[in-house]
Every structure is written in C-alpha cells, then in structure tokens.
Amino acid sequence: MSLSVLAVDDSRTIRDMLGLALGSAGIEVHLAEDGIAGLEALEGLTPDAIISDINMPRLDGFGFIEAVRRLERFRATPILVLTTEAAPELRARARAAGATGWIVKPFDPPKLVRALHMVAGQEDA
C-alpha cells in the first residue's frame, strides 16, 4: 500500500519538487498552495500524512495545522512542517500548533521520504 500525502506550500517550485521527490518514491501526492486550499483539499482526502509550509498567504502553516487538528478526522494524522528556519522557537510554535515533525528546506528527498514513512508508520519500500 502506498502512502498518500497532502503537501501544502505556496511556492510552486517547492510544490513541484515535492511532487517529483515523493511521486518518484511511489507516494501519492496531493498539492495545495496555501492553508485554505489545504483545508479544502482535506474535505475530499484522507492522507496518511500532511506536509505544510509555514509562510503562506491567506492561511499560514500554524493556522493550517491548528485547523487540521481541530478536525476529529485528522487528530492523529502526522503533519510535517517544511521550514527554512532551524530556529527552535519556530519548531516549538509549530509543535504547539500540532505539528508532528519538521523538515528543513531545502530538503533531501530520500530523508523526506524516510521521515514520511516513519511518521506514517509504513516500512520503506
């Protein structure tokens, strides 16, 4: 069974790269361009994991994660935060919002895939 992941990032480049990195690892990728679009996408999706950027228009990553966690359906869905900042207080904020883990951009595709498999509890292919 392959993983399905929703990736939310306002940068088309990062979305493209996520699509490529995850897609080529056999992960089913859904993409959304900001928090609002991410929430809309979740109406028709139950991904095994979610990846979210922080700085986004309309609804940023913190707001998005909080909103996702308020949905009963996604209380236990792992959410990885994509961030360019390694600063601990940012991680703390992300975690407080309900994030499961974080990935520093630019990401290393194999590690990202491993991290996804880990948080979603699936063996590496």
Partner: peptide, 14 residues
C-alpha cells in the same frame, strides 16, 4: 516578506 522568502527557499533547493 513571503516573496523574498519563497525565492530564498527555492534558490536553496538548487
């Protein structure tokens, strides 16, 4: 901020 931030993020990837 977001514009500069996104450019930075993408540039880092390459």
């Amino acid at each position: 901020f977001r514009a500069v931030h996104s450019i930075k993020g993408g540039a880092g990837a390459f």
